[in-house]
Design a protein around this nucleic acid. Structure first.
Lengths: 160, 160
DNA sequence: TATTGTTATACTCTATAACTATA
DNA sequence: TATAGTTATAGAGTATAACAATA
């Protein structure tokens, strides 16, 4: 059970995300850059110097492997990503961002990470306070998520 | 241009939304209640005692009118919503939530508005502080949104 | 035999165009 | 003539099943 203040804070975050100036952000970014929304998710998760196996991408995106094939086909067709063989397992294909893909990724994040207009109503001190409180929440949330649901831990993790 | 603290705060909100315990929230709610994600959006915007014209729904969801027809067809088929004639304009159809639809809506919100696990790492005072700061942002954001992009105002709104 | 990625296929989501009824 | 909603249809987005290559 959670406190009323926490509940209201969370509801307000949802309102800022879905009803405020940032609501159509995702769609605007897609239109201005000329890519499909599904591409953003892929681009944001790939990196320039860290090849990732297709299978791992399917797992972390929670989608079917065949759909990863389709997504990476698209990215490759536009020159944003590149398939590479796995050094030791020839079944596996890995994916990296090309220089052009990395550039597009930077353009996306610079728009997406721009805070909604309402943040300008806070003083500098308030902005720093807000930032610290949110960081505390995010750190705790990440820690809790890696406990009960983390990737490295077996499912029956907690010893009897 | 926005301050570094504001930028970091916003990025942290995005991390909490997309990477933390709340990341799969929407999908979980859909599965546990047995409805499609698109239905959530519709249900959350309808009300039990405030009939809304189909046309207005299309506008506020930013989608085509024909898709509203499909959505409301689904909701009606499941007994969650009901079409009603407009009192004065016989072209218009309005939509309201049925009692059952309102009940499902309550179940959805009670899960969706549950704050992510990380909020429990804040003291009561910190939760209240966070809540106040976010409220300030949300209020300013709503005010700014209703200025440049508001519904009631003509596009060329600012007088010369 | 089990696993990785691909292909073929089908189902869901959403938009466009043509249509009917009303204003 | 213009507007509200519907129908028919087509295009994206995504999954399932069958398959080839490799382990």
């Amino acid at each position: 059970m959670s406190s009323d203040a926490a509940r209201e804070a969370w509801r307000t975050i949802l309102a800022i995300m879905w009803q405020g100036e940032a609501a159509g952000r995702m769609r605007d970014v897609c239109q201005s850059i000329g890519i499909a929304p599904s591409m953003i998710k892929s681009l944001m998760h790939l990196e320039e110097d860290a090849p990732q196996a297709m299978r791992d991408l399917a797992d972390s995106w929670g989608c079917d492997a065949s759909y990863v094939t389709a997504l990476i086909d698209d990215l490759e067709a536009r020159g944003f990503a590149e398939r590479r063989p796995h050094p030791s397992d020839r079944r596996v294909k890995t994916v990296v961002l090309t220089a052009e893909g990395a550039e597009v990724r930077r353009r996306i994040t610079s728009r997406l990470w721009e805070p909604p207009a309402g943040f300008s109503s806070l003083s500098c001190d308030e902005q720093r306070q807000l930032c610290e409180l949110l960081n505390k929440v995010a750190r705790a949330d990440a820690a809790l998520a890696s406990g009960p649901r983390g990737a490295g831990m077996p499912v029956g993790g907690r010893p009897g």
